[in-house]
């Protein structure tokens, strides 16, 4: 049997209550959302929190809505809701692309966007998606609320800007015209983590790429934000040659490790191809939106 170490448990009745509990119980206390990363890790003794603060009753953290020029997603929104959201499908189809290949439908009934981002596993898909669409996250702590861009979110392997006493409450996706986005992933079998995955978002106006975001999963110590390829693309007219060049930069700028999912040269090649495909599909979607 896989048994976690003993731990205390309480149910939060409000976000501020959860933060107060985190403060009171100290750094050995953890939020539990879907539990689909944390509980297996506790059973394998890779995590040993002394207290769990369950936020599943905080239905006020479960929503996807449009407000003030942004799509706002509550931290407790589950994968299945992201997959089925028409609002997201209209503005950021990259979410549906990713959600059809994240884990399996039963896991998707429980896992949340907040848990995925806070877990910050380098192989996790939504971090790459949020990096590509230039999301911002709202983090609330004892000192109040702050908004952090994805470029400042990952501070190291499995480490994010969310501190021990903080709760991630919301993900914000700025809405800008002419956008298109896509996620491309290769996995060993259905429901598995990526061998490599690439997320891309482009914003196109008057035939030029005005802005672009690219995030990679599973090919580094943390999610990779491809700034060098983004710089190349900005201001250019979209073309196959340009996207191939961006793919070549992606293959060079990622830092995969060799493991059961494949050797390094294979993963680099894969990243190049997936980045190229994600950009091609994102640009095509942007073009169809423009029309």
């Amino acid at each position: 049997m896989q048994t976690p170490a003993p731990f205390g448990y309480e149910r939060a009745t409000s976000v501020d209550g959860a933060i107060a509990s985190l403060q009171r119980l100290g750094p050995e206390a953890r939020i539990i959302a879907g539990g689909h990363s944390l509980l297996p890790m506790m059973k394998l003794r890779l995590a040993n929190p002394e207290h769990l603060i369950d936020i599943n009753d905080l239905v006020e953290l479960s929503y996807i809505r449009e407000q003030d020029g942004e799509i706002r997603i509550g931290a407790l929104t589950r994968h299945v809701a992201l997959l089925k959201s028409e609002l997201l499908a209209r503005h950021f189809p990259v979410f549906a692309d990713a959600e059809t290949v994240i884990a399996d439908p039963v896991v998707r009934n429980r896992g949340t966007i907040g848990g995925s981002l806070c877990q910050a596993d380098a192989a996790e898909d939504l971090s790459a998606v949020c990096t590509a669409v230039k999301a911002k996250v709202v983090i609330r702590g004892a000192a109040g609320e702050r908004v952090v861009g994805m470029e400042d979110f990952h501070v190291g392997p499995y480490q994010t800007a969310v501190g021990a006493g903080d709760v991630l409450t919301e993900v914000r996706l700025p809405l800008r015209p002419g956008s298109g986005s896509a996620h491309e992933k290769v996995e060993r079998r259905a429901g598995d983590w990526a061998i490599a995955a690439a997320s891309a978002a482009v914003w196109i106006a008057a035939g030029r790429i005005t802005d672009v975001g690219i995030g990679l999963s599973a090919v580094g110590l943390t999610t990779i934000h491809l700034t060098r390829a983004e710089d190349l693309l900005r201001g250019q007219a979209p073309s196959e040659d340009l996207f191939a060049e961006a793919g070549a930069i992606a293959a060079a700028d990622c830092s995969p490790g060799a493991d059961g999912r494949g050797p390094i040269d294979y993963k680099r090649h894969l990243v190049g191809v997936l980045t190229h495909r994600a950009l091609r599909r994102a640009a095509a979607r942007a073009a169809s939106q423009e029309a």
């Binding site: 049997m1 896989q2 448990y9 539990i32 539990g35 689909h36 509980l39 297996p40 059973k43 394998l44 769990l52 369950d54 399996d104 439908p105 039963v106 896991v107 009934n109 429980r110």
Partner: peptide, 23 residues
């Protein structure tokens, strides 16, 4: 026991969940 195999699925409020990973 770690949410990979699906042997433990039950319905919680009508939705299938892996019961090994719900306290």
């Amino acid at each position: 026991d770690t949410s990979n195999c699906g042997a433990c699925v039950v319905l919680m409020d009508g939705e299938p969940v892996k019961s090994c990973t719900v306290l």
